[in-house]
């Protein structure tokens, strides 16, 4: 049973950053923008929250700083993609590079190191890591995990029940109709992208001040892309995204788990590949099961042929 508790613990741990980022990306996606730069935003968030936590001595201030930084970067992304009409996918890949290289550069300039930067101020963990029994499921998980149900509820309400959410969907699905109805599509897209940025910042913070208490180069290691996939696989619906994120979280936890217990006798690298393989399989399943869902990046043409 203890194994099960430990496993659930690592599922929650692995799902948290994915889910925060994916819930944010949901808005960009519904607004019709492929925000592929989640990875970069999460890195910026992770770095800014650690930096803020060190500078101000409070992890919450660090998260606020991270949100501010990511909102600014998201606004720049909006400027480049919506106003200057750059290709969203290429600009998104660029954002990942900016996040990777920029955080590494700032790490060198501010902290004079290329190793890990750790902070003493962290997000409180209501249940200690030493807890036993069912409580150990929540052991040493930060408050950002506890905030997730609330975040899911708010995202569901905003996306599905609010005026803003409806405008976001209209801007994405049929911008011309939205424009005709008096919606300023560009401003709505700016709002959606900024929400994405803010939630990616929290996702990145969940990794740094939330669990590892440190920042290191490329610490997200593809989580941003996995979160993007969770939105595709969850078919842009809040509950679908939650389910998809948990599937990827379970894949991550299985990797860690089989690593510790040497279950399959596979080399470590093959176990570490698991989340990516699961992602490809999930996308294949989505494409096979819901061919109309618009999974392909290269436009809607295969959809329209039907």
């Amino acid at each position: 049973m203890n194994e099960f508790y430990a496993f659930s613990n690592s599922v929650l741990l692995g799902t948290t950053p994915i889910l925060w980022a994916a819930l944010g990306c949901l808005f960009a996606h519904r607004a019709g923008i492929y925000q592929l730069g989640l990875e970069g935003l999460m890195l910026i968030g992770a770095f800014a929250s650690i930096g803020g936590a060190i500078a101000f001595g409070s992890a919450w201030t660090g998260i606020l700083l991270a949100i501010a930084a990511c909102v600014v970067v998201s606004a720049l992304f909006w400027l480049v993609v919506v106003i200057l009409k750059a290709n969203a996918i290429i600009a998104g890949l660029g954002l990942v590079g900016i996040g990777l290289g920029g955080t590494s550069f700032l790490q060198r300039v501010i902290f004079h190191t290329s190793g890990a930067v750790s902070a003493k101020a962290v997000i409180p963990t209501p249940v200690a890591g030493t807890a036993t029994g069912p409580a150990s499921i929540l052991g040493s998980l930060s408050l950002l995990v506890y905030l997730l149900p609330l975040a899911v509820g708010v995202v569901w309400f905003v996306a599905r029940r609010s005026n803003f959410g409806l405008r976001v969907s209209a801007s994405g699905q049929y911008p011309f109709a939205a424009t005709a109805a008096g919606v300023n599509v560009r401003w709505i897209q700016l709002g959606a992208l900024c929400i994405t940025g803010a939630m990616c910042a929290i996702g990145g913070s969940a990794l740094s001040v939330g669990s590892l208490h440190a920042f290191s180069y490329d610490m997200t290691a593809g989580i941003g892309y996995v979160a993007f996939t969770a939105v595709l696989f969850g078919r842009e619906a809040p509950w679908g995204v939650v389910l998809a994120s948990f599937i990827f979280g379970i894949a991550t936890a299985l990797g860690i788990f089989s690593q510790i217990h040497a279950i399959f006798g596979l080399p470590l690298e093959f176990i570490q590949m698991m989340p990516y393989v699961v992602t490809v399989l999930a996308l294949w399943f989505a494409g096979w099961r819901w061919p109309q869902a618009g999974n392909a990046a290269a436009g809607a043409f295969l959809e329209l042929r039907e």
């Binding site: 750059a86 600009a91 660029g94 590079g97 990777l100 290289g101 180069y217």
Partner: peptide, 15 residues
């Protein structure tokens, strides 16, 4: 890694 930053920036702006 500053090259990563530079290529990212170019990619951000190139289109």
């Amino acid at each position: 890694t500053s090259l990563v930053f530079l290529t990212g920036l170019i990619s951000f702006l190139v289109t």
